[in-house]
């Protein structure tokens, strides 16, 4: 079981001479590890290190292993690390359906099949019938759900959550949070959550690492 999760092996992040953080942990499938810390503590940098798109200004060391695969050194697109940011970041030049299609792996062939997968992914987040909509016309909550559908459609092997609920109002935040964590559990994905909101950590229910500035 340990083998199937995400392991951060002695990961350190530094900016110049300044060591920002050090993490050594394992996240089981379906588990959410929460990292809390003030801004500037390097927690978002940790996520980009795991995703493989760390800013070259930072120095990072350590290994990342996911589902038994050593990801360290792999280009970001080989890591299957799904990311959700505080903004939905839907591609504005594509329709809602286009955003989902963009995520579905190329192995799924056939126009009709891909389209039905996309429609199903939207239905899963309660947005059936939104396929042809322009992302600009959606509400904040709808956008967040499309972003979730999009990341799930890519069959990620882990989920990286960079304060994904902080822009939503309290009511919406609770519901979106539940939706995301339910998906994590249902798909048995290891998830790494970065936040400064205690309620997020509580809802995640997993272990919490607190770092200081």
């Amino acid at each position: 079981m340990e083998n199937m999760g995400l392991r951060l092996d002695k990961v350190t992040i530094a900016l110049g001479d300044h060591d920002l953080l050090e993490v050594d942990c394992a996240i089981a499938p379906g588990e959410v590890l929460t990292i809390m810390g003030p801004s500037g503590s390097g927690k978002s940098t940790l996520l980009s290190f795991v995703a493989g798109s760390i800013d070259p200004a930072f120095r990072a060391s350590g290994r990342i292993v996911c589902a038994g695969r050593d990801l360290t050194g792999l280009p970001p697109q080989e890591r299957h690390a799904g990311i959700l940011f505080q903004d939905a970041l839907l591609f504005p030049h594509m329709s809602v359906g286009g955003n989902i299609l963009f995520a579905i792996p190329a192995a799924e062939r056939g126009r009709a099949r891909r389209r039905s997968l996309a429609e199903a992914a939207l239905a899963d987040v309660g947005l059936a019938g939104f396929y042809s909509r322009d992302p600009a016309t959606l509400s904040g909550g709808q956008k967040a759900r499309v972003a979730l559908a999009r990341v799930l459609a890519s069959h990620p092997s882990m989920l990286l959550l960079d304060e994904p609920f902080s822009r939503l109002d309290a009511d919406l935040r609770g519901r979106t949070r539940d939706l995301v964590f339910a998906a994590v559990r249902a798909r048995r994905l290891p998830a790494l959550l970065v936040t400064h909101d205690e309620a997020d950590a509580a809802a995640a229910g997993g272990p919490v690492i607190r770092i200081s500035a």
């Binding site: 798109s53 280009p75 697109q77 799904g82 990311i83 940011f85 970041l89 963009f102 792996p105 890519s154």
Partner: peptide
């Protein structure tokens, strides 16, 4: 906003594909 790039990479797109699409 380079987070769009991170999203595309996370969706398994290569650098070139990300750039083009």
């Amino acid at each position: 906003d380079r987070r769009y790039e991170a999203v595309a990479f996370g969706l398994g797109r290569s650098r070139t594909r990300m750039l083009l699409t």
